[in-house]
């Protein structure tokens, strides 16, 4: 039916249900996707909502690959120990085979970047302001500023948040979710999207296990219920327990 006059005809035809008498057709009936319910044109898009971010992420991935740089995206809720783990990692890995650099994402302040710099790492701070996650465009800018050496490992600390960062591909090689034993055992079920996109889960602060009722086995079972192939490491960034397995895992990303 013609959305303008209500008739069923082609150009020149009239007398449809919208008008009782034959009438002229100054408007075009051949317009693709014309709306049946009124003036206007329906345009089919069928495009991915995050298509632009995914394009930029692919560009980052290609940029990183050209330089043989491996990027790892670290995500967790605030306070799980991302920065402490990064400080320790930078201190322990600096001077080994592979240069390490860090992109720090926070809503505000350069405090974390200063911690990494003091640990000996090259670092770029990204402040997202009101934003609750890093996206591929922010990481593109940070990579340009960081200018990592060929063959580097770039550790990206996402904004502390177990929901939003899960949806945004940054162009990274792997995604790591950190949970600490002072959090709830059931966190993988409460924030399943984050655990579903992860390649590795780190259970941090295991030195505190005697003082809390966190159940690591149950937590791993919950995490694997949304992501059966998930790898898990337990460690303490403070005492150093379990860090060798983390460094081996990082080496395996190369």
């Amino acid at each position: 039916m013609c959305g303008t006059c209500g008739c069923h005809g082609g150009p020149g035809e009239g007398g449809g249900p919208g008008l009782a008498v034959p009438h002229a057709h100054p408007h075009d009936h051949d317009q693709v996707g014309e709306s049946p319910s009124g003036a206007g044109e329906t345009i089919t898009l069928e495009q991915r909502v995050l298509g632009k971010n995914e394009e930029l992420a692919d560009r980052n991935r290609a940029w990183l690959a050209r330089r043989s740089v491996v990027a790892v995206n670290l995500m967790s809720s605030p306070g799980a120990g991302k920065t402490t783990l990064l400080e320790r990692t930078v201190r322990d890995l600096t001077g080994r085979d592979r240069p390490v650099a860090v992109i720090e994402g926070d809503q505000e302040t350069a405090l974390d970047a200063e911690r990494i710099r003091r640990a000996g790492g090259s670092v770029v701070q990204v402040n997202t302001g009101a934003g609750c996650h890093l996206d591929a465009e922010m990481v593109e800018g940070a990579l340009t500023a960081l200018d990592p050496d060929t063959g580097s490992l770039v550790l990206v600390e996402n904004v502390g948040n177990l929901v939003c960062p899960a949806l945004f591909d940054l162009g990274e090689r792997s995604r790591v979710v950190i949970i600490s034993v002072t959090e709830g055992t059931d966190k993988p079920l409460k924030y399943p999207y984050m655990f579903a996109v992860a390649d590795l889960v780190i259970i941090n602060k295991v030195d505190l296990l005697p003082y809390v009722d966190f159940d690591p086995d149950q937590c791993v079972a919950y995490a694997r219920s949304v992501n059966p192939g998930l790898r898990v490491l337990t460690l303490s960034a403070t005492t150093g327990e379990g860090l060798d397995a983390w460094y081996e895992w990082l080496e395996g990303r190369a």
Binding site: T42, I43, L45, E46, Q47
Partner: peptide, 10 residues
Amino acid sequence: ELQIVSMRVG
């Protein structure tokens, strides 16, 4: 799914 399906303009 997370898609923009279509829109109506005009």
